[in-house]
Design a binder for these strands. Structure first.
Lengths: 256, 256
DNA sequence: TTTTATTTGTCCGTATGTATT
DNA sequence: AAATACATACGGACAAATAAA
């Protein structure tokens, strides 16, 4: 026995999929849907909340509920970091065959700060807790203006001092900027290890990512090692789950 | 301005974290909580739903709401498939230093079927759509009896025919069973590529995984290549998001 | 086995707040 | 200023699942 609001969500989802409610268009208002389905407004509201947490619609006060465009999942993961993507010649932001999954249709704002390392950062960056770290925070907005990811990258102050890692930037999203800088200062990335898991956002993340209550996010923790297998970068990422897909290729042979 | 039911969820979460509500114990019933917080029962129910979708509590009719034990996230990903885990000597299920993240505290039921390949399977397995595939479906239950993952692995019928890939099994979870069989029949796994993304479950998955409405799941699609870089296995996985963490290590150097 | 009590799940009707048009 | 439309909360009702008698 499946709840009515779930049935209604299924029906509305089907209508979106078949084009009856076009992308970018508004759904009928909740009161009308309630009348059509012959249920209470609260029941319709619950159904819409489900669709909103799936990332398919967005409801906003006094504006109604609009169908979000069905964009293909952005692909991130090991292939994203293939050297061809970030070694010279530098990728052109304007497009071309170098065209990455994050192109000029998303913009990035990077701010720089300095803060002492907490227990985890210290351990992962091989420094002492309390040591100063340079933190580069990047907020990436999709073409539609919504924040889709927030990434913080940490570097030992001794490493970042006096380098371009201290410079704030904004413009088209460029996932490889820091890799290029690290290479320029003689710390060319060699290996990455990445952990990720999906969960629901906490109070602070709701506002920062602009997700609704109950909409899943993916958290990543990544470490970048230079050739000498010393960690040079530690980063945390928070992603709107409905917009990303992670791809990894790895070796399982005995020789690997 | 944060909604009252979110505030209450935060408060209850804090109480769980500080041990006021112990793991495995029952929370006060909704009516009592409503009285204590001086809100309506519905408001408390909404708060509990949030905690349930986070995987922290489980509410069941007439039984109340119990605090789920905070178990460390199961680690899966590239390290999971390191050859030492699945090549001989075979891992012992009883424990020991070979102890994997999925141990004898989880059990697996594997059923085998034959079905024609759909468009995607065919493309990923390098066969013709409509060709018979052998499908091994594994349902893994955690120690607490809940289903935590459902994995379907597909093989070309020509490959699986007459091999142990056709045998149904049950017992302690063994992630490497198929790798061992593939090795035995001369198709030793060499490379894996894996895609994953988090989303909300659909109607069918609700029942199969035993998750509640709005609780995030992670879907994976994996391909295993033998040494000759021919795909030998295609698999799809569905995981309870709150119980797993994916770890990957990969090379980004120019030589890689 | 049958009945009764308990507790959550769902839905209703209503009211009010809030941001936008 | 006024109308609009979603967000939240309330109180009530009943159903469903389980436990207790």
């Amino acid at each position: 026995m499946v709840a009515r609001y779930v049935q209604i969500a299924d029906e509305l989802r089907a209508r979106i999929d078949c084009g009856e409610y076009a992308e970018q268009s508004s759904l009928p208002k909740q009161a009308d849907l309630a009348r059509d389905f012959d249920v209470n407004v609260n029941t319709v509201a619950a159904a819409l909340k489900l669709l909103e947490r799936e990332g398919r619609v967005q409801s906003r006060r006094s504006r109604g509920t609009v169908v979000l465009p069905k964009i293909p999942l952005q692909k991130v993961g090991s292939a994203t970091y293939h050297p061809s993507k970030w070694t010279s010649p530098r990728p052109r932001t304007g497009g071309g065959e170098a065209g990455p999954s994050v192109g000029s249709d998303s913009s990035e704002l990077t701010t720089v700060g300095v803060a002492p390392a907490d227990e985890e950062m210290a351990e992962r960056l091989n420094v002492v807790p309390g040591d100063d770290l340079v933190c580069r925070t990047s907020v990436v907005r999709d073409a539609d203006g919504t924040v889709s990811q927030i990434v913080r990258k940490y570097y030992a102050y001794a490493v970042a001092k006096g380098t371009l890692l201290m410079s704030e930037e904004s413009g088209p999203a460029n996932r490889w900027r820091e890799f290029q800088i690290l290479t320029d200062i003689g710390l060319e990335p060699a290996t990455v290890d990445e952990r990720l898991h999906a969960r629901l956002p906490d109070a602070g993340e709701l506002g920062a990512l602009g997700v609704s209550v109950g909409e899943p996010v993916v958290e990543t923790r990544r470490r970048v090692y230079a050739a000498s297998s010393t960690p040079v970068e530690y980063s945390t990422g928070l992603y709107r789950a409905s917009r990303f897909q992670w791809n990894y290729t790895f070796d399982v042979s005995v020789g690997g």
